[in-house]
């Protein structure tokens, strides 16, 4: 079924490409080549997919506790900025420097997310409100840090707002041609899967998510779980920003990856909030992203067409009945769409 959804999404995209006067076969061929043709292309796909895995995990994990973290973008920015700071400001051996930079980036984001959790648990401030607002706060804050008067401004950058390049010892290397960052992201996905399905904390998180009153009655501290969940969720998003900084960009520049936090929502939904399913979902979106550059170079198709394709894939994944109707398949057993995200809305 998911493969059919992808196929239908591509068909809709093809229609758009035809409308704009290009050949969809040429365009998709270029997209495929740019994402999977050769080791460079695959490396690019993995690089693009890495923050998507972590952004998707962030949203998916928060959903388990019935929390909607729309703050991925701000958390990612904090993670990126703080990891860049550790990266350029300290001289450490790589074995310490890289993990330190990743963890500091993640923790900075976790504080922001934990704050949203604390506001929710103690003051009843809806996490959708606080995380949206904190996105703008984080964007302004990180922009200032590297602006003309900011403390982390690159002295050699002239008028450009950015941090200096991180030291070589903080540079995320490739292991056997694979970006290390992607391996970290996969590790994070497996850890979250374990946490959710095998640990006591995960059980408590899910209990709070399904029925906070029952959870409190059973002796679970709902406040604690909400703060921890938001903290972990934000840590993941921040880690995504940190990996992007250390492994790809080499420094922090404000406003990079705008919209990435929202891609996290898409991926979490595509994966039906399953931590392991986040990986293929992110790879799919990452491959399209990586391939869109070559597609634009060869055919003048605007790369944003992939957003339309993604929207259609998400739609078809969530609406199996439409796929069955188009293909005139028999109404087999109604597949459970897996998640009931909407019912978590607004619970305090």
């Amino acid at each position: 079924m998911p493969l059919l959804a992808v196929a239908f999404g591509l068909i809709v995209g093809a229609v758009l490409i035809v409308v704009s006067g290009d050949n969809p076969l040429v365009a998709y061929r270029a997209m495929l080549e740019g994402s999977l043709g050769g080791s460079d292309a695959i490396g690019r796909t993995l690089e693009k997919a890495t923050p998507l895995v972590l952004g998707g995990l962030a949203v998916a994990f928060a959903f388990k506790a019935g929390l909607f973290n729309i703050g991925g973008q701000g958390q990612l920015l904090l993670g990126a900025a703080f990891s860049a700071w550790v990266g350029f400001n300290f001289d450490l051996p790589a074995v310490i420097h890289i993990p330190a930079a990743l963890i500091v980036g993640g923790l900075a984001a976790a504080i922001l997310g934990g704050l949203a959790g604390l506001l929710k648990a103690t003051r009843g401030v809806h996490e959708v409100i606080s995380t949206i607002m904190l996105n703008f706060v984080a964007a302004n804050f990180t922009e200032w840090m590297v602006s003309r008067d900011g403390p982390w401004k690159d002295p050699e950058g002239g008028a450009i707002a950015r941090t200096p390049l991180v030291q070589d010892s903080a540079d995320l290397p490739r292991i056997a041609g694979l970006p290390t960052g992607f391996l970290v992201a996969v590790l994070a996905a497996v850890s979250i899967w374990w946490l959710v399905n095998r640990s006591t904390l995960g059980f408590e998180v899910k209990t709070v998510g399904s029925n906070p009153k029952a959870a409190a009655y059973a002796g679970i501290s709902v406040t604690r779980i909400i703060v921890i969940t938001m903290g972990i969720s934000a840590f993941l998003a921040g880690l995504g920003g940190a990996i992007q900084t250390l492994g790809v960009n080499g420094r922090f520049e404000p406003g990079f990856q705008t919209g990435l936090g929202f891609d996290g929502i898409t991926i979490a939904l595509l994966a039906r909030t399953n931590a392991l399913a986040v990986i293929p979902a992110a790879l799919l979106i990452g491959a399209m992203d990586a391939g869109s550059t070559l597609m634009q170079a060869r055919t003048n198709v605007e790369p944003e067409v992939i957003n339309v394709i993604q929207a259609m894939i998400l739609f078809f994944v969530a609406a199996p009945s439409v796929v069955r109707w188009i293909l005139q398949l028999s109404e087999a057993e109604d597949v459970d769409t897996g998640v009931d995200l909407a019912t978590g809305w607004g619970t305090t």
Partner: peptide
């Protein structure tokens, strides 16, 4: 369809 998903579809589209 889950309403959060449907809204997200509109946003990305």
């Amino acid at each position: 369809m889950d309403q959060i998903i449907a809204g997200t579809v509109i946003n990305i589209f």
